[in-house]
Design a protein around this nucleic acid. Structure first.
Length: 536
RNA sequence: GAGCCGCUAGCUCAGCUGGCAGAGCACCGGCCUUUUAAGCCGAGGGUCCUGGGUUCGACUCCCAGGCGGCUCACCA
């Protein structure tokens, strides 16, 4: 690692005259940096060495010496610490240079003095550019201004990776959204808060696993490639693909639901899967064609049990990930502590239309008497009316009315559960005992969007058949999101699925909430974009 | 898919009513052994997203297209 430092005490002569022309177009800058790599090679220094010996991180050094002042550090024989990281700043004072090195833990200053580090190493320092990766070994010290630094010892500086492209500007970082998404490596290198976002994402997923594992759930993996019959479990259009050897057309899954319930039939009473879901639909602030969901199923539980579990899990995750049970989201602090308010979809819609009936049955009966025009009377907004007009059943009418009028009114500073869903929009949920026009289902909302969807599962195979038939009918009428009739799933239910409750949570959306990210693309490392135009 | 907005140096951005393309940082040369958005002196760097049109003259105005953002639609 310290090769070729002692061989030649005199700095190697510059390979050629200075560049004839000072330049700075990107091509020029790359050429110049390549030239510096060549100069390193001329001094028998590899610009891309392997086996660099790093003994610690910037974070560790900061931690160990957090409370040591300059005097204490001078008295103590600290280290030596060998750290490496991307060079974020170079401040040269002539025969002494300050570097800001950034590794996975953060930034730390390195202080390289010519008389300490030795002439050869100091000469290679002159070939260092912002964005290169450098290695420094030495003791910990504090500068006059009190900044903790590593002071490079004899031979304690090495350039370990030459970067050919310059980093974005140090002060503003990289802010062009398109470049941030397309070249996430630059975004991550330049903008520390982006790393924090993705660190939190990982923490969240780890925390979910721990939470469910503690409750004796087991994690499984089910197929992503679905036959056309299997590609159900949600209302969504699919991606098409094809398997060559079998010569069959396949679809990418739109949910993990139906396979997971097959596993419950098989006796895996508590099961979950975290994985990618693909839905061939538009892209906006909260939708992405590939996203990550967790679905879990618990036998002998009901949707009521899952509401409790959800409150508990998400409030705990918020604490684990953000350090508090309350987290700001786009200007509003959301308090995740249980219990979350329950809001009745049926009740809210009934209230909207002046129906104060006491029972669900009464509300449904009264709402059933309303005409399409009655439903539309609440708004003159053309688009809202169009939506309301599309409803083909009372249940859809209620759902659209809720979405249009009530959803925007959900609490902003708290997550909430919406309950009392109509059966028509819930083809996999169990009918409610006593009111078969409703199902035992909830959706959780926070920050203005849905984060979870759960229900007591339908386990009556004959009822499931009927629901599938209704979906097939809907598909015939042109509903492209209707799910296919999955015969094998019905066969599985015929073997008997214990009474079960299941839930799906959008992990990306939770990450948005816990990182205060405005859009789903900010929490996905490489979001799908149109292909880049030629030339970059 | 629709509406609105944006695209100028590697990055972040100015550029007026059409008249030679600008700044800061970065880069290049020089000075500097405790700086930290280091500093000082000097130099260079442009497919103004693309293609048409109007005009004596277009970064600027018009048309078409590309990519992105936001809103809406689609979407649980």
């Amino acid at each position: 690692m310290t090769r070729a430092r002692t061989g030649d005490r005199k700095p190697a002569p510059m390979s050629e005259e200075k560049p004839a022309q000072a330049t700075s177009s990107i091509e020029d800058q790359i050429r110049l940096r390549e030239g510096k790599a060549a100069q390193l090679r001329e001094r028998s220094l590899d610009p891309y060495p392997a086996g660099v010996h790093v003994t610690t991180t910037t974070g560790h050094v900061r931690e160990v010496h957090a409370s040591d002042d300059a005097k204490a550090l001078e008295a103590e024989a600290t280290g030596p610490y060998a750290i490496a990281g991307r060079v974020m700043a170079i401040r040269t004072m002539g025969k002494a240079t300050f570097l800001s090195l950034r590794d996975r833990d953060g930034d730390l200053q390195a202080f390289v003095k010519k008389d300490k580090v030795g002439e050869p190493a100091y000469e290679t320092l002159k070939l260092l550019d912002l964005g290169d990766i450098a290695w420094v070994k030495g003791r910990a010290m504090r500068t006059r201004t009190g900044e903790l630094s590593i002071e490079a010892g004899e031979g304690g500086f090495q350039l370990v990776t030459k970067a050919l492209r310059p980093l974005p500007e140090k002060w503003h970082g990289l802010s062009d959204v398109e470049t941030r998404y397309r070249q996430r490596y630059v975004d991550l290198a330049a903008n520390p808060e982006v790393r924090e976002t993705f660190r939190r994402r990982t923490k969240l997923i780890t925390g979910m696993r721990r939470f469910l594992d503690e409750r004796e759930f087991i994690e499984v993996e089910t197929p992503i490639l679905h036959t056309p019959e299997q590609a159900g479990g949600a209302a969504a259009r699919t991606f098409q693909t094809h398997h060559n050897a079998l010569d069959i057309s396949l679809k990418l899954r739109i949910a993990t639901e139906l396979h997971l319930k097959r596993l419950v039939v098989g006796g895996l009473d508590r099961v979950y899967e975290i994985g990618r879901i693909f839905r061939n639909e538009g892209i906006d602030r909260t939708h992405c064609p590939e996203f990550t969901s967790i679905e879990f199923y618990q036998a002998y539980a009901t949707y009521q049990d899952l509401m409790k579990l959800t409150e508990e899990m998400i409030s705990r995750l918020c604490l684990e990930v953000t350090g508090s049970s309350e987290a700001p989201y786009q200007g509003t602090v959301i308090d995740y502590r249980a219990p979350w308010p329950r809001i009745s979809m049926l009740g809210e819609v009934a209230r909207l239309y002046g129906i104060e009936g006491s029972s669900d049955k009464e509300k449904l009966d009264q709402l059933g008497k309303l005409t399409r025009n009655d439903f539309g009377a609440r708004t003159s907004d053309k688009e809202a009316l169009f939506k309301l007009g599309k409803a083909e059943s009372l249940g859809e009418q209620i759902a659209w009315a809720f979405e249009t009028f009530s959803e925007p009114m959900l609490p902003r500073d708290r997550p909430s559960f919406v309950v009392d869903f109509p059966i028509e929009i819930s083809p996999l949920a169990r009918k409610r005992d006593g009111e078969p026009r409703l199902v035992d289902r909830f959706e959780a909302f926070a920050g203005g969007f849905e984060i979870a969807n759960a229900f007591t599962e339908l386990n009556d195979p004959r009822d499931q058949e009927a629901r599938f038939r209704a979906q097939v009918e809907a598909a015939k009428r042109g509903n492209e999101e209707a799910m296919p009739y999955d015969r094998d799933f019905v066969r599985a239910l015929e073997h008997g699925m214990p009474p079960t409750a299941g839930e799906g949570i959008g992990i990306d959306r939770l990450v948005m909430l816990f990182t205060d990210s405005p859009g789903i693309r900010d929490v996905v490392l490489f979001p799908l974009l149109r292909p880049e135009a030629e030339g970059t």
